[in-house]
Design a protein around this nucleic acid. Structure first.
Length: 570
DNA sequence: GTTCCCCGCGCG
DNA sequence: AAAGCGCGCGGGGAAC
């Protein structure tokens, strides 16, 4: 266990499995990495600390990586809400551990946190990191875990979540190898050469002029939706919004250039030269990942838009000279997770060794892969209209067990209940206002409008809980996959000094390492000689994750895997 | 002047 | 083609 002690020192306390204190050592914060590094070498313990975000980046900056941790803040948030925990009381009282993730940490600081060795660890607001409070929280958490219905399953989740905290810090420290020249080529090709500050690229200026002339409004600002909407109406284009899906239904000479302008504008504002200047340094894009940032357990990102890199920029993701990218994504992760959770053998069979959607077509449920996909997504998201509304009832007949699971989750949510993922993460309870509105709408003197609003909001919540169990369990699978992969890659031998990539610093230049993660996809940056072994590890860890979560189930999780110098646009 | 919300669109 | 879930971000413009 790691915590701050009196006098600005940091204390490392060794605990036995039963919580007994075995030994203690303390040191100045400036040399903490040396102490931690030595202890990690000696015994590779599971490090307990307030928050990996606060402690790990500076250890990494000093070249120290750790195998395992218990992240009290992330674990607290799971335990506090989990329906598996029967005595959450003490956790609910420890509100200082319930702080939201550093939502407004200034971006600028991140570069600084990574490399400076400021003796004061940067604390997440409200999370105590003193050794005694850290110890007390661990005791509360252990009691809560022991009280759970299925402690082993919950422990899997907590270990995976904590591994995620390590991975997120390592991903940020390693960075994504980014080819600035290729990015600039893509921008220049699409928009024209980089313009001076305050002006638009040449091709955007041209297209904007086309739109203005087609609309007969030479001064129109295309970037203001209200103004644009009024101009569209004046030109006789009858749309309710300026969104592209509505515009492309209409016939008018202004539409085509307008849609082109919107695409260009999006690229420029979201991932243009300003983004490059701000986020890519020394050939590395270092986004900020936020493990557990989504209620379902998915990661979020904060700053840099790591989870929204547009496909057209993927070619800018390029391995260092002599290195390769090993990219892998899981085919149809969420439906496979649903099939496994519900033991729906027909659905498992439909995906066995092949594309799940094609399997559904071959089973005779629908005629085309596209229909199968629309239907399955409708089942996961609660679609009721259009094509998905037509296909879902057929899926319900063919895959009754799978559909019963998501339908049940939706029904629970509509009633105001909470649902729980496979490993034990529960959905948040409805807020009191929601419950009150439902109660009022069911009362004797509720108006029809009030009832309709309440029903709609109940259905909204049902769609959320329906998706929660699947999205959340998929996130658990992905974390288990990465956690295993991370430990496997750490065992790879170091490559010779002349084969190392430099910008990642000493820790990540020595061997294959994770470089990117996006819900159901990982990219490993590997010395060329290690790429095949990394690919094998990725596959084996995917199999291992399936067995870990669903022991005995025939479910498989096939990967699309590629070894390349440069990421494909897809 | 700053803050907050909505719109629109990128990702899974 | 979007829909039905989960997000983050930039820009505009209203609210403060």
């Amino acid at each position: 266990m790691l915590g701050r002690a009196a006098g600005g020192r940091t204390l490392v306390r060794f605990l036995a499995a039963d919580g007994a204190v075995l030994s203690e050592e303390s040191c100045e914060a400036t040399v903490l990495h040396a102490l931690v590094g030595r202890l990690e070498q000696e015994s590779a313990p599971r490090w307990v600390w307030s928050d990996a975000t606060a402690w790990y980046p500076r250890l990494l900056a000093a070249g120290v990586t750790l195998s395992r941790c218990h992240d009290l803040r992330l674990v607290h948030r799971i335990l506090r809400h989990s329906d598996l925990v029967t005595v959450p009381g003490p956790l609910r009282a420890a509100t200082e551990w319930d702080t939201p993730l550093e939502p407004e940490e200034p971006r600028r600081e991140l570069g600084a946190t990574l490399f400076d060795l400021d003796p004061q660890p940067s604390r997440s607001p409200g999370v105590p990191d003193g050794i005694e409070e850290t110890c007390a929280e661990l005791t509360r958490q252990q009691a809560a875990i022991a009280s759970a219905e299925d402690p082993a399953r919950l422990r899997l989740l907590l270990a995976a979540e904590s591994a995620g905290a390590l991975i997120a810090a390592e991903l940020q420290a390693a960075g994504i190898p980014w080819d600035v020249a290729e990015h600039d080529r893509i921008l220049t090709d699409a928009l024209g050469p980089r313009p001076g500050a305050g002006s638009l690229p040449a091709q955007m200026v041209e297209v904007a002029a086309e739109v203005r002339s087609a609309l007969g409004d030479p001064l129109l600002s295309l970037d203001s939706p209200p103004k644009l909407l009024r101009a569209l109406h004046r030109a006789g284009i009858d749309v309710a919004s300026t969104s592209q899906w509505e515009l492309q239904e209409k016939e008018h000479p202004a539409i085509e250039p307008l849609l082109r302008y919107k695409k260009m504008s999006r690229l420029l504002t979201a991932n243009g030269w300003a983004w490059l200047d701000e986020w890519v340094h020394e050939g590395r894009y270092r986004p900020v990942y936020v493990p557990g940032g989504v209620v379902t357990g998915r990661w979020a990102s904060s700053g840099g838009g790591a989870l929204q890199i547009p496909r057209r920029l993927r070619p800018a993701l390029r391995a260092d000279p002599g290195w390769l990218l090993v990219s892998a994504d899981v085919s149809q992760l969420e439906p496979r997770v649903l099939a496994a959770m519900s033991s729906d053998h027909t659905m498992i069979e439909a995906g066995a060794g092949r594309d799940l959607y094609s399997g559904i077509v071959e089973a005779g449920v629908v005629a085309t892969r596209q229909e199968a996909k629309i239907g399955v997504l409708g089942a996961l998201y609660g679609g009721t209209t259009g094509d998905s509304g037509r296909v879902v009832p057929r899926l319900r007949r063919t895959f009754p067990a799978a559909m019963a699971l998501v339908d049940g989750a939706a029904a629970t949510g509509e009633r105001g209940g909470t649902v729980t993922t496979w490993l034990g993460r529960s959905s948040p309870a409805p807020d009191p206002g929601w419950v009150q509105a439902q109660r009022a709408a069911n009362g004797p003197d509720a108006g029809p409008g009030e009832q309709e609003r309440a029903r709609r909001s109940a259905r909204d919540r049902g769609r959320f809980t329906r998706n929660f169990v699947v999205q959340g369990t998929a996130a658990e699978w992905a974390l288990s996959w990465m956690a295993a992969l991370r430990l496997r890659l750490a065992q790879f031998p170091e490559v010779a000094a002349d084969e190392r990539a430099d910008p990642s610093g000493p820790v990540f230049s020595r061997r294959a390492h994770l470089a990117f993660f996006l819900h159901d996809e990982v990219i490993v940056h590997a010395p060329a000689a290690q790429a095949e072994a990394a690919a094998a590890a990725i596959r084996e860890c995917a199999d291992a994750a399936g067995r870990l979560l669903f022991p005995g189930s025939p479910i498989d999780f096939p990967l699309d895997l590629a070894i390349t110098e440069r990421s494909a646009e897809k």
